[in-house]
Design a protein around this nucleic acid. Sequence first.
DNA 1: TCGTTTTTAGGTCATTTGTCCTAATTCGTC
DNA 2: GACGAATTAGGACAAATGACCTAAAAACGA
Lengths: 194, 194
Amino acid sequence: MNASATRDSIVTAADELFYTRGFEATSFADVAAVVGISRGNFYYHFKTKDAILDAVITRRMKSRDDMLRSWVDCGQSPKDSIGKFIRILLMNNEKIRAYGCPIGTLFTELSKRDHPGEPAARALFDLFRQWLRHRFEDLGCGADADQLAMHVLARSQGVATLANAYPDEPFLETEVAQMLAWLDAIAAQHAQTP
Amino acid sequence: MNASATRDSIVTAADELFYTRGFEATSFADVAAVVGISRGNFYYHFKTKDAILDAVITRRMKSRDDMLRSWVDCGQSPKDSIGKFIRILLMNNEKIRAYGCPIGTLFTELSKRDHPGEPAARALFDLFRQWLRHRFEDLGCGADADQLAMHVLARSQGVATLANAYPDEPFLETEVAQMLAWLDAIAAQHAQTP
DNA sequence: TCGTTTTTAGGTCATTTGTCCTAATTCGTC
DNA sequence: GACGAATTAGGACAAATGACCTAAAAACGA
């Protein structure tokens, strides 16, 4: 098989395992088993576990960046863009209930261990934060834009955590509806005072 | 030393280490070193790592339960009680910035590994949830009480996570102020429609 | 075919949990 | 104080696991 194809399937498998089982709990052997290659081959592509983590974070970064860009490029209103972000929680409903937020849980794990990959994991938060801030600026929120961005991020994180703790309850849907209502209010408020 | 005193200091040390480093990352040797006892003595008190985890969760449960009860017993209004809960985030400011929420991060870690201690960790959430629900009921929120309780829990979790990711920003204080303002609005709303 | 790339099989080394043992020390009780 | 029970120290050791490494084989392209 092509080397970059093998490398890619390793990163794909690692991404999934880091999400569902956690970074530390996932071993070389686990990833190799999913991909169907030997541990030695694994080492051929990635010298250290941190190198795989880097690749996984880079992959997530690109994936999220592409997603966010597509929402802006398709030309919808800033409010609808932010609404789409909030609705990610609904889109990934089952996975969030089962494993929490892939960004949040990874950061929390790396932070607790003072892992060198922590800044890279924080950069994933930054990506969403900047994007949200720009959308709120487009909405006319000016100086409040960053604070609003952080607010949306925090509530999303909280909802993901609690949905993970209480997966059998309709809590996630309720909270998303409330966040969308809150967004309506913010948008209305800044529409009349431009 | 008294056996229960030794046991207690083990649980205290484990509680702190599980919080600051995480459960999996903390080894028997780590805890024994902090307490200043031998590994042999350690095994005299706790046969397995899961047994220490149980003891730590029980301890946290009792500590939080005592705290919540004291807030009700001192006879302040339900609104002020809920306010005190929200202000936990301020009280534990530095620790939350450094290590996140002790309840949330423990649950997330155990959940991700399908650890048998997961239900016990969820019970900690339940404790806060029930208490908040009762306070909102006292406030006259009736059927909405549980949903409001979950809302407060979720926002607190989200704030803790983001404050952990951005420890150098005044974000935590800002969000607490907003939550307290939100609480004011809820209380006012139910004061005029009893 | 030849040389490079890719893959495999296997092993090393360190760490951690958990078990077990012995001897010393402390403690409660008489 | 004496005695037995509880507690502690300090280790040896097995089993498991995971990160990391090497060398030979296989696949592949020119």
